[in-house]
Design a protein around this nucleic acid. Sequence first.
DNA 1: ATACAATTGTGACCAAAGTCACTGTATAAT
DNA 2: ATTATACAGTGACTTTGGTCACAATTGTAT
Lengths: 209, 209
Amino acid sequence: MNLAEKFKNIFEPELLQLIESSVSISTVREGDVILEAGQIVRIIPLLLNGILKIARIDDSGKELLLYYVHSNESCAMTFTCCMQQYPSEIRAVAETDVEFLAIPIGVMDEWLSRFPTWKSFVMRTIRNRLDELLDTIDQLAFQKLDERLVRYLKEKSRAAGSSLLNISHEEIATEMASSREVISRLLKKLENDKKLLLYRNQIRLLKEL
Amino acid sequence: MNLAEKFKNIFEPELLQLIESSVSISTVREGDVILEAGQIVRIIPLLLNGILKIARIDDSGKELLLYYVHSNESCAMTFTCCMQQYPSEIRAVAETDVEFLAIPIGVMDEWLSRFPTWKSFVMRTIRNRLDELLDTIDQLAFQKLDERLVRYLKEKSRAAGSSLLNISHEEIATEMASSREVISRLLKKLENDKKLLLYRNQIRLLKEL
DNA sequence: ATACAATTGTGACCAAAGTCACTGTATAAT
DNA sequence: ATTATACAGTGACTTTGGTCACAATTGTAT
């Protein structure tokens, strides 16, 4: 699908043309790091396909999954970071192979005033990401690990578009800032409750979850 | 101090004039709720003086302090909420008596395109609040309660502009989504370590904290 | 087929935090 | 001055989650 087709309901024609003529398409492989914590943000990624994983990294290197960026979406952090050339507070990793438009940060400011559809897109994106961060805060503050795990699995399944997840307990523990043994135990409990099936490096979510 | 004086370094003259001629000043008392969770956002508060407390409320009514809004600042949530007339996800309470400009949400969109200084102000505000939310997430995910408590006390002191805090253990527990007994014990430990002094409804922070 | 590495399962133990129950203690109300 | 009330202190216990140690299992490489 071409660009104009893909974004015709999101951006006005003039902006679409400008994007097509001036913005380059980048491709990265699954596992590639798009943006490392502490780096200066140089481009705004606008996803054509694939999934980006956005995570927080603490001083000791521990990780916490924040949210996924899907096709036709972008990342709120980069919007606001780039306006003031601030370093990023997060890490962006390709969860699958990803194709994206690398919008140079310089045009951001001008487009915001010039194109109402860009302005709407930016504000909508920020709002959605803010909501997701609040949701993450809710979970950390008010929910227990077993509930967080269930949500994590459902979210992962939604992102992957499949009820079969290719992931190890260790990876889950890392993304949830927990420990492998605890995750293994909680997963085993969910399996006993007939909510899912466990395999090596794979988890099948059942409808009861 | 008049408006023009207060914001002359933030907003351009034309915008300042528009604000002065069209925006009403509201006053609320300490403890008043400006915005309840679930309510539709009708105005953007731009603080003239005083402090607003922004907190998350979970389904069971439990609270978690997110951040404070100080003089000359505004709240990122309302910016993005108002663009789409979404209900708020948070509660805003006056921590002190507060005077603020109640900017009608209708002008937000137009000003964003029309006034570069407004656009900068909005983006800067959003960025700062995003950072604070990430910080909150860090603390919840990676820090223990005693470290969180120290930060909470320092932040409260900064907001109040005093090393003497007028607050009960119960209130602290509520704002940190913890329990009174645990907070009392941690405070007692800090007192034993000569980091602070405890009184009824008051805490004196010492320089060693 | 055998050896190796990565993954998962589990028991025992520990630390952090929440809960329950009850005792003091300071302040406010009468 | 006496009572009532909100606040603070504390021991005992429970739950949750993290850590350690090691066994069992599965998949991969030679």
